[in-house]
Design a protein around this nucleic acid. Structure first.
Lengths: 213, 213
DNA sequence: GTCTATACAAGGATAGAC
DNA sequence: GTCTATCCTTGTATAGAC
């Protein structure tokens, strides 16, 4: 479910304790994604992980500690995938190519790991103050990457110059997140869905030169 | 704050009891908008309305009852304003003109009554099951209006035909909501902010014919 | 390591005085 | 009508058995 869930290969290298811990975090990620922070009950996480509520405290000191680890992991995965997709581009890539590679990777992450990352962003305001503080650096690092990509693409003339770059940055991120609300009928393959999303973001309601069929 | 807050003229026609009731609902709307459903404490609503927690129960049977009335009011206001803006168009209006009038009105509502309506949509998933059921008809009525507007504009050829109309509908609504996250620097006047939003939604990142300056 | 039982805190709801 | 005091429920956290 999340990156912290151990696959068989990874599990082989982990102690039994680490495996259980990872299983709990994966369970937390799932429950968080489904119900949001405020509705996440330790009892639900425990049930998902196949144990009793009290047992969680053998691995984590508090609900906050557990939840934070799950959320932080979700953002890191998205950030890393986006970063990597840009780095993987063949050498002379334009700023626009870099931005659109990032967008594609981001959309892809959402489609693949489902609502884990969205749960994070969506319920960010609901988190306890101190947890927000600790998660902020990672979120800001990710945000900063988007800012750089957008500004570079504005400067290279590959995207519009007449709107504040930060607004464009928000547009990219938040519009990408809409994909989770799309009906299943349009979410056929990941590749196709990504194409539709990128086309919509690139050209808007009207579409290029008054819409191809 | 919300439409249910009595202005002086309206208040003159209401009994004292109705006025107090309306004041409480307005307080609830404000607290809900600021903190979201789950963090809304009756104590906070009571404080905002200038009374003690227990006193609320003279007017409302439960927290749910109070909250529901406040949320329902928020959606109705937005819906009504959008509907009205379309109805107010001079007689021979095209489907595209109707859609864009609706978008402008919706953006305007958000800017004016702030986060009341957003709070609603944003925390919809957090609401108790049974409350969702009861609010659903109003939300669906609003949703249905958007659907009609979008489909008509697709058919008239005024917006793109190559993407599922319901996806376009979601794009309109959710992108409009992004406006609440825009920095204050770009939100100068309501008219200007609305223009920027509409331009972005209409033409996307790239902009028409490769972006005017 | 995991369980069961229980302490403790927070917040919604009720009762009764005024 | 509004207040204060108190009850009840829910959910986190701890203790101690196994």
């Amino acid at each position: 479910m999340t990156a912290t869930e151990p696959d068989d290969v990874t599990a082989a290298r982990m102690s039994k304790s680490e495996v259980t811990r990872a299983r709990i975090i994966a369970a937390a990620g799932k429950v968080l994604a489904e119900t949001g922070y405020q509705h996440t009950r330790l009892s639900a996480i425990a049930a998902e992980a196949g144990m009793q509520t009290g047992s969680l405290y053998y691995y984590f000191g508090s609900k906050e500690e557990l939840v934070e680890e799950a959320l932080d992991g979700g953002v890191r995965v998205a950030h890393e995938r986006v970063r990597q997709s840009v780095a993987d581009l063949p050498d002379p890539a334009t700023a626009g190519e870099r931005l659109f590679a990032a967008i594609r990777a981001f959309v892809k992450v959402r489609l693949e790991i489902g609502s884990m990352s969205p749960a994070h962003i969506r319920s960010y305001r609901d988190l306890p103050q101190d947890m927000r503080e600790r998660l902020r650096p990672e979120l800001e690092a990710f945000s900063s990457l988007w800012d750089q990509l957008v500004i570079a693409a504005v400067e290279s003339g590959e995207i519009r110059k007449d709107i504040d770059p930060f607004v464009l940055h928000l547009f990219v991120v938040h519009t990408s997140e809409q994909i989770n609300k799309w009906p299943d009928t349009v979410r056929t393959s990941i590749a196709h869905t990504t194409d539709v999303m990128v086309r919509l973001m690139t050209n808007g309601l009207e579409g290029p030169a008054h819409t191809k069929r």
